[in-house]
Design a protein around this nucleic acid. Structure first.
Lengths: 193, 193
DNA sequence: ACAATGTGCAAGTAATAACTTGCATATTAA
DNA sequence: TTAATATGCAAGTTATTACTTGCACATTGT
């Protein structure tokens, strides 16, 4: 999992092209051009194009494990939920390349799709267990459909992220900070007694 | 805008492949196979591959115009918002092919992306004007951030649709009906006094 | 009955993309 | 200083893909 400077440049170029064109349409020619290396250097370092994808997935999976470790609740709803949403959004942003591939090439690369699916699944279970704990502590209303609220929050974040990343209209887009501040406050309102 | 049975079969096969593989990776060979016609028949009917895309876009644009026409409010918040969400989701579902292409090939086919962007833009402005009207009629709270709530609703629907269409885990997915029933009720709660 | 129209089929073309190979050259490590 | 290692470069291979052409055949309207 440690890479030479050349390998890092190649992987960076590869990821940029994944975001724009997806795996199948990211040509080794363009990767080489963007990384400013000779095309053959790619094959010598990563064996084949699949090797590039595998290296990217390996980085991603290692990072998911790290994400699952850290977790600290304060009991302050707005603060905790903001932190969770922020963490989730930042993670998806950092791994945008593999995330987009998992979405758009879900049919041709089902393994990648399975790996990407792990994010919303983890995010949802994180939310469910957090909300249940808050219910036990009597900090939020007792008659809430927690499963639904958690999914609601996941969909909202997912929808926001994709709108930001795929649409340019300012009519649809706000800043990450504004999203966190306003939308989470409104979500928290739903939870209170 | 009227097509022969052969042309309809070709367009159907094309759209199915757009959903799975996107435009660039939908090969004329596979389209022909799926439509059970000879590959040459495609070119004779639609000139080139771009012609297939254009025909699909034309159908989509005509349908968007139709969507913008129909609009009937009852004043019943839950009913109206459910109808809107339902209409939006059904529309996106019907035009999933072009919708997915606009998302995943936003860099290589920016024109398609622009056309697809029209949906959330229209959906948002529909919601904003509806909520403003309800505010004037004193049917919902006066101190609401309507812009934000409308976008919130758009993101929620968008996130739900993509999760449904791209992820298979039952942990993340519920039925269309359940989504409408539960999530909209919860959204309506936020609006009331 | 016949002419137009649409489709199937076989063959081919030109461009692109993922690799391979062989060799020259530059950098680094003993 | 020398030997290993990494990279650049030029050329080529193989497969795929969008698209073309020419001809045979079948359906349909007059």
């Amino acid at each position: 999992m440690s890479f030479t400077p050349t390998q890092k440049r190649i992987l960076k170029a590869f990821k940029d092209l994944l975001i724009e064109n997806g795996y199948r349409n990211a040509t080794t020619h363009k990767i080489a051009e963007s990384a400013q290396v000779n095309e053959t250097t790619i094959f010598r370092n990563f064996k084949d194009k699949r090797g590039l994808l595998q290296a990217t997935i390996d980085q991603y999976l290692a990072d998911i494990d790290r994400l699952k470790q850290e977790q600290k609740d304060t009991g302050n709803l707005e603060k905790d939920l903001t932190a969770m949403a922020d963490k989730y959004q930042k993670f998806v942003f950092d791994h945008q390349a593999i995330f987009m591939v998992g979405l758009r090439e879900s049919f041709s690369l089902p393994e990648v799709n399975k790996d990407v699916e792990k994010i919303p699944i983890h995010f949802k279970s994180l939310l469910v267990s957090y909300l249940k704990k808050m219910q036990e502590k009597r900090l939020i209303s007792q008659d809430l459909d927690i499963e639904m609220l958690a999914m609601n929050f996941v969909w909202l974040n997912f929808g926001f992220f994709l709108t930001q990343s795929r649409f340019t209209s300012s009519f649809l887009n706000i800043t990450h900070e504004e999203f966190l501040a306003k939308n989470i406050r409104s979500f928290v309102k739903e939870l209170k007694y």
